[in-house]
């Protein structure tokens, strides 16, 4: 297949952590302040990790680097032992909903199908297996009745579920979710939580940027607080916010 990235992914490095960040710093062009300031993080495969912090703390920046969308200024980050963006089909990134043109004339089913493109590459058309994976993901997110709707006709919560369905269709091993529970309905909240639990049972890894701090300790294996681009120990962060 003609891969989009053209980069090589070494698929089987045994026991490699899902993500390993060593003193990662990043800066946006034209801004003096560091968006991330020497952040360390080790995420073994199969863990569920929360990134918590106020707006502008660097949560989204961290996820964007892991997704291969932003370059690191200094430090290193590896995904399953390879460089970021090397194994793009293994990583799914759920951006905040604003990054998609929801008025564009595509159906919900087509949106979910684009999760398969990482496996198709140039020229190859989606086959039977790709459509089956798409429909299974739609059913799992309880969107099958809405599959032929134009994507802009969905509610905010349904849109979020469509994006998670795409990550399921992609069959990614590492899911990066940016505020998946921001302003969504109770049904979506329940479906997303349940799906994340099932994914963890399958050995998938999830890193989730969230404001939802109340039930953190038992829903996540690891909680990382980010403030002004620095990671802060749990106790200090809770002290600051109280």
């Amino acid at each position: 297949m003609l891969r989009y990235g053209g980069r090589s992914c070494i698929s089987a490095i045994p026991n490699a952590p899902a993500l390993e960040a060593r003193c990662v710093s990043a800066r946006y062009p034209g801004v003096d302040r560091l968006a991330l300031d020497c952040v360390d993080l080790l995420v073994p495969a199969g863990q569920r990790v929360a990134l918590v912090g106020p707006n502008g703390a660097g949560k989204s920046t961290f996820l964007k680097i892991a997704a291969g969308l932003l370059k690191i200024q200094s430090g290193t980050m590896s995904i399953y032992g390879s460089a970021t963006a090397a194994c793009d089909h293994r990583v799914a990134y759920l951006a905040q909903r604003g990054e998609i043109d929801w008025h564009f004339p595509v159906s919900v089913r087509k949106l979910v199908l684009t999760g398969r493109y990482a496996h198709l590459g140039w020229l190859r058309r989606p086959g039977r297996g790709d459509w089956d994976a798409t429909d299974a993901a739609l059913r799992r997110m309880r969107l099958d009745a809405l599959a032929e709707r134009q994507i802009g006709e969905l509610s905010g919560g349904q849109q979020q579920r469509a994006l998670l369905a795409r990550a399921l269709a992609q069959d990614a091993d590492l899911l990066l979710l940016d505020e998946p529970l921001n302003a969504v309905d109770a049904e979506t909240r329940a479906i997303v939580s349940e799906t994340l639990r099932q994914l963890q049972e399958q050995g998938k890894t999830a890193i989730i940027a969230t404001h939802d701090v109340d039930r953190l300790s038992h829903e996540y294996d690891q909680v990382v607080f980010l403030i002004d681009g620095k990671s802060v120990p749990w106790t200090e962060a809770t002290k600051d916010s109280s």
């Binding site: 989009y4 969308l69 990134y93 990054e99 493109y117 198709l120 058309r125």
Partner: peptide
């Protein structure tokens, strides 16, 4: 016709396109 799926995806969701390596 040949690049339909790439044009479509990069037009409505450039971020996902970039994540899977499609510039």
């Amino acid at each position: 016709a040949i690049l339909h799926k790439e044009f479509e995806l990069a037009s409505f969701d450039p971020t996902h396109a970039e994540v899977i390596g499609l510039s």
